[in-house]
Design a protein around this nucleic acid. Sequence first.
DNA 1: TTGTAAGCGTTATCAC
DNA 2: GTGATAACGCTTACAA
Lengths: 321, 321
Amino acid sequence: MAVSLALNGRPGVSDELRAAALSLAEELGYRPNYAARALRTERTSMMGIINRNLHNPAFLNVIEGFDDECAAHGYQVMIGSSRLDLAHELALIEAFAARELEGLAIAPLETEAARKTWRRKSERPIAILNAFAARNDPNVLSVRSDAVTAVRLAVEHLRELGHRRIALLTGTVKERSDSDRDSEFIAAMGRDSLTPHMIACGWDAAHARAAISAALAAPRAQRPTAIIANSDHLAHAAYLAAQDNGLVVPHDLSVIGHDDVETSQILGPPLTTFRTDRYAIGRLSARLLIDIAEGREPDDRHIEVPVELIVRGSTGPARRD
Amino acid sequence: MAVSLALNGRPGVSDELRAAALSLAEELGYRPNYAARALRTERTSMMGIINRNLHNPAFLNVIEGFDDECAAHGYQVMIGSSRLDLAHELALIEAFAARELEGLAIAPLETEAARKTWRRKSERPIAILNAFAARNDPNVLSVRSDAVTAVRLAVEHLRELGHRRIALLTGTVKERSDSDRDSEFIAAMGRDSLTPHMIACGWDAAHARAAISAALAAPRAQRPTAIIANSDHLAHAAYLAAQDNGLVVPHDLSVIGHDDVETSQILGPPLTTFRTDRYAIGRLSARLLIDIAEGREPDDRHIEVPVELIVRGSTGPARRD
DNA sequence: TTGTAAGCGTTATCAC
DNA sequence: GTGATAACGCTTACAA
């Protein structure tokens, strides 16, 4: 018993006994059994992170930050992918909850469905990544880049270049995970009395390419001259969709991304995009979950990470019609 | 206990009792406690995967395949990053072993160190990803793309374009994780009586960029006119290093990657590279680990995934000196 | 086929 | 500050 206290560095045991326990443990190569500990304490020291799919390289930096912060606090990280399938996402959330993970960070397909499923099996905190999160459940946290500001800056940038027919890529229409971003776009366009185009392209690059291709196939006087993507990953789909239609970026189509992924600066042409600290997003979400899991009150349960517009070669002046 | 047998779908219990147990479990919303099960059975249904760092987007596809195969067999996936730090890598391996993960897939910094550390704490299988693995330990598996053929094809392609000063990017010099790839390069160059250049650039993109920059800063008659990278990720570093030296790809420098990452086709210029089924690499490595973990004998403990050269705009004729 | 009892390795409770 | 003893929830061994 005293051994347990000693090894876990807790008070209630004499210094000599503690030393003896430690040295003996070392000598015998003792390793604690996590399963037994978990069974007894109901604490697994595991955190989970789930993304919609595993194709967007921007997610790697989020994982990295998440893993770093978890590792620093003695947690290990379980990873999962929704595979863009809501049923699979919910099954995965249940499985993670059944494993008694102490917290879950998730970029959800449908925020409310994800939250409810987690809540049904677990009282533990859940952090919503890069999506709008309602604030009624106190153990729902959120960390996201400031997508609302980004969309405003993007519209301003394109307006200065003379664009009038601007399209915004959005997630699914069914549930707007970025509802406030969408409405900011509509408002920003409205200020200049322009019609907002929305292209619901989901998160799959192939599907997005097809959706954008279809939009670009419209007659020249109607098709958008600029596209605002919700990630560099989907901006790449816009490049390919432009190719599909024999259009040249930025001559025929301006494209703005979001993330400033490593390759974006060496694309042809280099991508205008928003730089945002994805590592911090991962790290902060882990920090929030750990704070709650260990009974501390975090400074703020909802965090927005700032964005910075990086202008490169994929945006240019609108051609005269 | 009959209930245990019933819920786990094993024989030795009457149909009616089984049905009763199942329906009652359903009604009560029963969920098995994984910790208790793991404690009793010494089986955790968890698999681990570790990469050298979390920056190369090619790794995402490997994770995806790994996760898909694991999920299909009821395993969940723990992820980790070595952070390019050997001490951290070994600590992580120990932590995974202490958690009784049933198998580990790893792209190691140093293969032998990783293998030994795992073996010290665990009898379970370990799969080496994309690195050379000695075949003396029967529970060491390996899955890799056919990097040896790739380097031969790359040299042939560049020789046809008239290149004579060709450099190969390699991992660390200390331990050649790709020793057979390196020697194939030396042999292939030797066949044409050419001097092989090796640039030891490790796996960090920033470090690689600096190393390549230094090599390209040599006088024009000495510097390499072509670079063979071990990943698209590091080929990108070569693009930036070319920029650093005011060189234009492919006019002044040809670059060949490895992986055919999604963005490679829209780089400026599009990257000549080797396509390889990374999803399969992840999937097959999971399959091998699961087979061994469950006592089946896999068809082959060492798998090579074929490569296909995709010629694009980053390779061109060597300039006359 | 069913029931009973033991035990996995921890940590918590409660005497001393 | 220390040492017994019980308990977490599951599976296995063995007896009925």
